[in-house]
Amino acid sequence: MPTAPLFSFESVSVGPPDARRLDGLDAQLPAAGLTVIAGPSGSGKSTLLRLCNRLEVPSAGVVRHRGTDITQRDSLQLRREVAMVFQRPVTFPGNVLDNLREADPECDEARGAELLERAGLDRSFLHRDAGELSGGEAQRACLARSLATNPRVMLMDEPTSALDARAAAVLERLGRRLVDDGTPVVWVTHAEEQLRRLADHVLLLDGGRVHRSGAVQEALGDAER
C-alpha cells in the first residue's frame, strides 16, 4: 500500500472570490524529505503552509494530513504534531527555559539542554533572557521550542529571511539534520539559491496556483543540485 502524502490539497481556495490567495490549488507534499515551497511574493506560499497546521482554513476544498481530512483532527493535537517556525523569531517573556516550558510545561534542564542541542545551541542558553538573544540565536531558540512538542513534521516559514548569511546557513543545516533524523520538513522560501541548496522536492507557486512540482531536478528543469 503506497504511503499517504504528508499533506494533500484538493481544489483548495483561500480568500474571497475577488482576492484569492490560493485559487483552486491541487498539490501533494511527499511523506518524507525536505519539501521547499517557493514562489514570488504574494504567490500563496505562507498561506499554504498555514493551512497545514490549521492557523488558516480554506474557503473551499480539502486539506489532508497523511490521508486524513485535517478538519477531522483536533486542532491543538494537530499543531503539536505539525510544528511551525515563523519568519521572524517570536520569543516570549522570560529566559529560554521559560520559553521551552510554554511548549512543554514538564521540560526540565536536562530535556531543555537536549532540545537546545538539536537546535544548535549549548545549555548555557537555558538561563539567558530570551529577549536579549541575537536574531539567529532567537530563531534557533524558537526551533528548540517547536521541537519541545515532539512534532512529526516541521513547517518553516521563510525562517532565514530575517537572518544574516552565517545564521541562515546554520539554520539550513539544522533543517537538513531534522530530515536526516526522520522528521519531514516543509520549508517556504523565495530565494532560488536556498531552494537549490535544500530541496528534495519542490512546489513552485504563482498567483495562488501550482506552477511546477516534483523532485527538485525535474521541477527546476535541470539536473544540477
Binding site: N53, L55, L76, Q77, R79, R80, A83, M84, F86, R88, V90, F92, P93, E102, A103, C142, R145, S146, A148, T149
Partner: peptide
C-alpha cells in the same frame, strides 16, 4: 498576532494563547 499565533502553533488553546 505573531506572538498569539506562535503560542497557538505550540498547541496552546486560545485561552492560554490570549492570556498575556
Amino acid at each position: 498576532r505573531p506572538e498569539v499565533e506562535a503560542r497557538l502553533a505550540l498547541g496552546q488553546p486560545w485561552t492560554a494563547a490570549s492570556r498575556p
